[in-house]
Amino acid sequence: MKMKYAAYPYIIWLIVFMAIPMGLIIYFALTDASGAFTIANIAQTGRYMPVLIRSIWLATISTAVCLVLAYPLSYMLSRMQGLTSRTLLTLVMLPMWMNFLLRTYAWMTLLEKNGIINQILGVFGIEPLTMINTQGAVIMGMVYNYIPFMILPLHSVMVKIGKDVIEAAQDLGASPASVFSQVILPLSMPGVRTGITMVFVPAVSTFVISQMLGGGTNQLIGDIIELQFLGNAYNPSLGSAISMVLMVLVLLCMSLTGFFDDDDVEDRLI
């Protein structure tokens, strides 16, 4: 009974900060300037399909890169002694404590035509590379900013994989490769799922990174949405419609890849 009362603040919080804004977005998306019902806003989002596809594509690549980089790192961290592992994990998280904009600015000065990297290359007589304002730079920015969100859930699942089950697998004849594919990979899948969600969702809707590192040519859906609210294209109804479409697409992607149906694996990790 007590539990019920204790949950009230959270329920109120959920209503005020989740349900109401969500309702407003849906309301704006489905009404015109005078407040009458319309699907014109939704229909208009079709124009931005190429941008939407680019956003999903870049976010997918970034998520994949994050996974490939974070997985071995998290595994190594999880097999280390308590103190070493905690220290290294803190070092991984350290950049996150610095302001997001500042971090991304830093990358601008690194990647610029006259930036630090090209200057260093120049010392060795290498022609300056075009790095800023490319899709590669946007992907790099996303990976750099979001990789901690991949490492954390992976690490927290992997530390729970006991040395004893790994030894049991070895005992039953599993080579290191089999131990990985039969035990470590399946047991870390919940972390992989959470990590992918936590990187993909912010990456697909980011706008600062593409503006700062991608130049004008690599507009993402987040940039378009921002324009509708803060930019000169001011049109909250369209912005809401695009947000809604994006949300539905993301949910669809995830349910298609079976992200939500297998949460009992998480319980099984005891």
């Binding site: 089950v165 030894e167 089999s178 399946p186 047991l187």
Partner: peptide, 27 residues
């Protein structure tokens, strides 16, 4: 260990939590 013709019943069982009883025994 995986190249030794020895199997172990561990003191703390060390069963695979992601597999059911059949799959554990069949491992």
């Amino acid at each position: 260990p995986y190249q030794r013709h020895v199997n172990t019943v561990f003191q703390r069982y060390a069963l695979f939590p992601h597999l059911d009883v059949f799959e554990n025994v069949a491992f």
